[in-house]
C-alpha cells in the first residue's frame, strides 16, 4: 500500500483526481486522504432535485458535485476528511476488505469506532463515516467520509431538511442517519492535521515512498475536471428521468408547476399562475436544460425581481 499526495480542496478537481489515479496506476494498491471545501456530493445515479434544495444551495454558493460511485448525498466541509482505497478486485463485492482496516486504524489512534450496517462506521449509534464503491476493470475504488469536526448544523440543514417530495423519479435515494463528529469522542484531543497524519501512518507503511503526479498529469486532472466533473452533461444530464409537480403561493396567488425531465431536458411544462404569463413560461421552459443558472435566468425574465422566488417552484 502506497499513498499519493493531493492537497487540493477543490471538490471538482478532487473527483477528477480520484478517477485519474484509479485509471492511471492499475498496478498499485493506493490509499489517500483528501478534503473538500464546502460542497454537496451526490451519488452517480441520484436525482439532485430530490435530495437537496437546489435554490437554497445556489443562494449559499455551495457547489453540487456528482461522483462516480454509488450511494447517497453527503455534505463535505473542511472539518470532514475523505479517504480513498484503490485496490485490485478479488472475489465478490465486499466492503469489509477496506472498511475493517479503516475501523482498526481508527481504534488504534483512540477513536472508539465500530462498523455499522454494511458500509458505515459509527461511534455508539451515531454515524461518523459512510462509504461507497465503484468497480471497473477488475479494480475497486472505495471511498468514504470521516466527520472529524464538521459543521453538523449545516450538514443537517442541507442533507435532511430539503428532501423534495414534488418529484416522482427512479434512481437511488439517500438514507438519513444521526451523525456525530469524531473529535467529540476522543479521550485525548488531537487536531485535524494530527488525525490525518496518524491515520495515514496506520494504513500506509512508513517506508513506502508516496506517489506524486507530474505537472503533465496534474494538467490532465484539470482537463478531466473541466470536461467532465464541471460539465452540465455529467452533473445534470445524468439525472434519472422524473415527473415534477409543485403547488403553492407565488406573489400572493396560487401557482402550480408541472413538467417532465428526461436526460436533463424539460418537457410538458405547465406553469399555472395568475401573476405570470403562462404561455411565455411554457415557451421559455419547454426544452430547457435542468440547470439552476439557466432556469434562474428564465425566472428573472418571467418574474423580474421575484425571479428567485419563482425558482423555488421550479426545482
Amino acid at each position: 500500500m502506497r499513498t499519493i499526495v493531493n492537497s487540493s480542496h477543490d471538490p471538482f478537481y478532487n473527483q477528477a483526481f480520484e478517477e485519474f489515479v484509479f485509471q492511471t496506476f492499475p498496478e498499485d494498491d493506493l490509499f489517500f486522504l483528501w478534503q473538500n471545501s464546502p460542497a454537496v456530493v451526490v451519488g452517480c445515479y441520484q436525482n439532485i432535485c430530490r435530495e437537496v434544495s437546489v435554490p437554497a444551495l445556489r443562494r449559499l454558493g455551495i457547489p453540487i458535485v456528482r461522483r462516480s460511485s454509488g450511494g447517497g448525498t453527503v455534505y463535505h466541509d473542511l472539518g470532514n476528511v475523505n479517504y480513498t482505497f484503490l485496490v485490485k478486485r478479488d472475489g465478490p463485492v465486499d466492503y469489509d476488505r477496506c472498511l475493517m482496516p479503516m475501523v482498526e486504524a481508527l481504534n488504534a489512534i483512540g477513536v472508539p469506532a465500530r462498523k455499522n450496517r454494511s458500509c458505515d462506521i459509527a461511534i455508539g449509534e451515531q454515524k461518523i463515516s459512510g462509504s461507497a464503491q465503484r468497480v471497473s476493470g477488475g479494480r475497486i475504488l472505495q471511498h468514504g467520509t470521516l466527520l472529524f469536526q464538521s459543521d453538523l448544523t449545516a450538514l443537517d440543514q442541507i442533507t435532511t431538511h430539503h428532501k423534495n417530495d414534488c418529484i416522482q423519479s427512479k434512481g437511488i435515494a439517500s438514507a438519513i442517519c444521526p451523525v456525530t463528529n469524531i473529535r467529540a469522542h476522543l479521550t485525548q484531543d488531537m487536531t485535524l492535521d494530527a488525525f490525518q497524519a496518524r491515520l495515514l501512518a496506520q494504513l500506509v507503511p512508513m517506508d513506502a515512498q508516496p506517489l506524486t503526479l507530474t505537472a503533465a498529469q496534474e494538467e490532465a486532472v484539470r482537463r478531466l475536471r473541466d470536461e467532465k466533473y464541471r460539465s452540465w452533461a455529467w452533473t445534470w444530464g445524468k439525472t434519472p428521468a422524473f415527473q415534477y409537480e409543485k403547488e403553492g403561493l407565488f406573489a400572493g396567488v396560487p401557482i402550480r408547476v408541472t413538467y417532465a425531465a428526461k436526460k436533463g431536458i424539460l418537457s410538458d411544462v405547465s406553469v399555472d399562475c395568475a401573476a405570470l404569463d403562462s404561455k411565455d413560461a411554457a415557451r421559455l421552459l419547454e426544452g430547457a436544460r435542468l440547470d439552476p443558472e439557466g432556469l434562474a435566468a428564465v425566472c428573472h425574465t418571467l418574474a423580474g425581481e421575484q425571479g428567485d422566488m419563482l425558482l423555488e417552484y421550479l426545482l
Binding site: G43, S69, G70, S118, C119, S131, Q133, V135, S136
Partner: peptide, 8 residues
C-alpha cells in the same frame, strides 16, 4: 448499482 456500489 446495488448497496452503494456502481459496477461496470
Amino acid at each position: 448499482e446495488t448497496d452503494k456500489v456502481v459496477n461496470q
